[in-house]
Amino acid sequence: MSTATLEAPAKSPMSTSVSETPARTRATNRTIKVSIKRQASPESKAATETFEIPYRPNMNITSLLGEIALNPTTVTGVDTTPISYDANCLEEICGSCAMLINGKAMMACSALVDKLMGPNGDGAITLAPLSKFPVVRDLAVDRSVLFENLKKVKAWVPIDGTYDLGPAPRQFPQVQEQRYPLSNCISCTICMEVCPQFNEATGFVGAATIAQAKLFNMDPAGAVLKPDRLRALAGDGGVQECSFSQNCVQACPKQLPLTEAISDMGRDVFVQQVKDFFTR
């Protein structure tokens, strides 16, 4: 989805009579140069287009893309199309807008232009789609593999039904404090993008899914599927493919304890495999 931007809260009729507050952020003559790797369809060739956008303070990458939609003309004056990209909440919680910003995987909504432009404000910005996922168009990629993986590890609590069965078992705050951070995963797939092991050769499942398996193994009722999840994670592309580059935990915008989850799952998977070897 593309989105355009509005100025700071428009004044109400009251305000016009009462005060003259400088609600509008002042535009300067500075501009921002953005080069964007574009691709019209999954099959077509990629090409780079460069845009020049008037600078305003506190802009983020999604507002830059919104500005381009308002006036889709390249720096050389060629009329083009608005950029396709995924975005929804714009506050780094829906996980949609992951892309490569200056080569690095980041969330476009929380990537602030002032920071990207460097201390002198003269840096350039490049945007490209995530490199490990099939491009749909421009900056939009298909990340459905993550949702498929969540199915494979049965990332859910198999409740009996939605009818009223009273409260869940009590849970000490310490358990909640361990589970909550894992439950903050926004499925942005940045941990997968930055992982050297996540690629077509290994078919690695990626840190996000492993962390979710741990989350549900820790739930008192979710633990009923723990052996299933651990067996799934011992399949090709499972936890063993992790080589502990630890990029995931560095790049995760939500600071999930991903390496800890991988480590824990590594142990649990091993124990399960040994158990299975002797009992199945």
Partner: peptide, 18 residues
């Protein structure tokens, strides 16, 4: 209660209640 059973990590009191 249902959401609790579904595994929502609600904050807890020291006694383990919601």
């Amino acid at each position: 209660d249902l959401l609790d059973r579904m595994g929502v990590p609600f904050n807890r009191t020291p006694e383990g209640l919601l």
